[in-house]
Simulated scan of single mutants.
Amino acid sequence: MPEPILSLNRLEAHYGDFQALYGVDLEMHEGEVLAIIGANGAGKTTLLRSVSGLMSNAAAQVVYCGTPIGALRADEIAALGIALVPEGRQLFPSLSVEENLLIGGRLNREGPWSLSAVFELFPVLKERRAYPSTALSGGQQQMVAIGRALMSNPDLILFDEISLGLAPVIIKSIYDALPGIVGDGMSAVIVEQDISKALSVSDRVYCLMEGRVSLEGPSANISREAISRAYFGVA
């Protein structure tokens, strides 16, 4: 078995006096799609914030391609090839669609993703390239957030609540695009509240409950009963 691309080693995270993660262990390998599920407040977003450098941790608690990165800044981690699609999109409201996308390319990492490639993935963004990001629908804004992350040509992309608040038809279009995103060997972590979606697109799944891993295994082999026990803590 090759070395994992990402390892979390007894990861802990705090917001002041509040502890959000308690000794989380996780591994993923190159080209793998990993789903993180759990109820609200389980620690899913905190986990992604820790991996992407938005929260600082002990260096050895987050290891990427063999390098401890837990204490690095977000910009340093992005330069290593990790991109975050944040919850709520967090686009720059004063910039156009195209300008938001171009910001993602400022790292100048080599790879397949360019403005034209993003427009091919999401043709509606090409039609609206000059629009202010605030003039788009929620689903279109999510496409911009995904495109902005892809423009950095990451090796690992983190999706935080990829379908939150979107209409079912938009969710389907975004998930339909996912194979084109990870098809060239990119690794992905997907935080998702829709358990069926999470299981259908992932190789393995981790369930968090109150900041701890309550279940881990291949997505195809985990029963709904096991997920219910892990998700809600019921016997």
Results as ranks from 00 to 15, higher is better:
R10Y: 06
L11Y: 08
A13C: 13
Q19K: 13
A20F: 07
G23Q: 13
D25E: 08
M28L: 15
V33N: 01
A35L: 11
A42V: 13
T46A: 02
L48P: 09
V51E: 03
V51S: 04
V51C: 01
L54Y: 14
S56L: 12
A60P: 00
G66Y: 04
P68Y: 08
I69Y: 03
L72E: 10
A83R: 04
P86W: 00
G88V: 01
R89E: 00
V97P: 01
V97L: 03
N100S: 03
L101K: 06
L101R: 09
I103L: 14
P112W: 02
W113L: 05
S114G: 06
S116H: 04
S116I: 02
A117V: 07
A117H: 04
L121H: 09
V124S: 05
A130K: 12
A135Q: 06
G138H: 07
Q141N: 02
A145C: 10
I146D: 07
M151C: 08
L156C: 15
V169W: 04
I171N: 07
K172R: 15
K172P: 05
Y175L: 15
Y175I: 11
V182A: 12
G185C: 10
M186G: 12
S187K: 02
S196R: 15
A198V: 10
V201F: 11
D203N: 15
D203Y: 09
E210K: 14
L215G: 02
E216A: 15
G217I: 13
R224D: 08
S228Q: 12
Y231F: 14
F232A: 12
V234L: 13
